[in-house]
């Protein structure tokens, strides 16, 4: 994943993109994203016309649809303020995939401008705001799952650094940690057998270290893993990184 050179941050205004999955399933993760950005001193706007980043259509190969949805997203998140995304893969869709899907289109510059303003949430906290220590405490044994769309981005280091500052949070090593959990958007339904086998391996590897929670900057991966574990009859407690940071702050206050 290529991260473009981002515009320098001016002021404290940010636009939050919560991701369609947080909109539909994980409202508490979206709430936590708002709260930690405010705690970090940001003025947070959450445009109510936001829908989806368009990645589903990108991976499905339907780039006409992808461009339509991305155009809508660019319109909703217009203006100079940074776009902070509560999902590594949606962020990558906007800063890496959109410029590919818009090659040769007259509004490519609009998407390139959006790309230069787009940040994954922890990348923004760590590298735009310069937060290197997250004060708080949370007593838990946790696995960090790095979504594949954060490969080669600053998100992985940011998640690790922010978690490392939380008192009581023990990060566990998992075998084959870098391997994909097999979700892959439409892949999960066009290749259900392979996707499931990959998901079962991931869930088995993660559960082998008996974590209290599985943390990620991407709810899509966690939703897939929890879904796989659910059919196998296993508990699989998942937490968005924003929830972990918020809960740690609250724990620190007590």
């Amino acid at each position: 994943m290529l991260t473009p050179d981002r515009n320098p941050i001016q002021g404290r205004n940010v636009q939050l993109m919560i991701s369609c999955l947080c909109d539909a399933f994980f409202d508490d993760a979206a709430k936590a994203a708002v709260e930690i950005l405010q705690q970090a001193g940001c003025q947070v706007t959450v445009p109510s016309d936001q829908t989806c980043c368009g990645q589903a259509a990108y991976t499905a190969g339907d780039w006409e649809t992808c461009r339509q949805v991305m155009r809508h997203t660019a319109k909703v998140f217009a203006g100079p303020d940074p776009v902070v995304v509560a999902s590594g893969s949606c962020a990558a869709a906007l800063f890496h995939e959109a410029p590919i899907a818009f090659e040769g289109e007259s509004d490519l510059p609009v998407m390139q401008d959006l790309a230069r303003r787009t940040w994954e949430l922890t990348d923004f906290l760590r590298n735009a705001l310069g937060v290197d220590q997250w004060a708080g405490s949370l007593a838990a044994r946790a696995v960090i799952h790095h979504g594949c769309h954060t490969r080669g981005t600053a998100t992985r280091e940011a998640v690790r650094t922010l978690c490392a500052g939380i008192q009581g949070l023990e990060i566990l090593d998992v075998p084959d940690a870098d391997q994909c959990c097999g979700f892959g958007g439409v892949f999960s339904v066009s290749h259900p057998y392979i996707s499931t086998e990959m998901g079962r391996k991931k869930v088995t590897d993660v559960l082998s270290v008996k974590p209290d929670i599985v943390i990620s900057a991407d709810m899509s991966c966690l939703m897939h893993q929890q879904g796989i574990a659910g059919r196998l009859g296993s508990e699989y407690p998942i937490r968005h990184i924003a929830q972990v940071l918020r809960d740690a702050s609250m724990g620190g206050l007590e």
């Binding site: 919560i18 947080c22 909109d23 539909a24 399933f25 994980f26 409202d27 979206a30 709430k31 708002v34 959450v46 109510s48 999960s188 339904v189 066009s190 259900p192 499931t196 998901g199 939703m223 897939h224 929890q226 879904g227 796989i228 659910g230 059919r231």
Partner: peptide
Amino acid sequence: LGVSRAWFTSRTLPRWRGGYFRRWL
């Protein structure tokens, strides 16, 4: 539905909570 069966045979889906976040906001 092919898509539905392809997903649900081996996976569950979390409870739909659409709208809650927007109401909270």
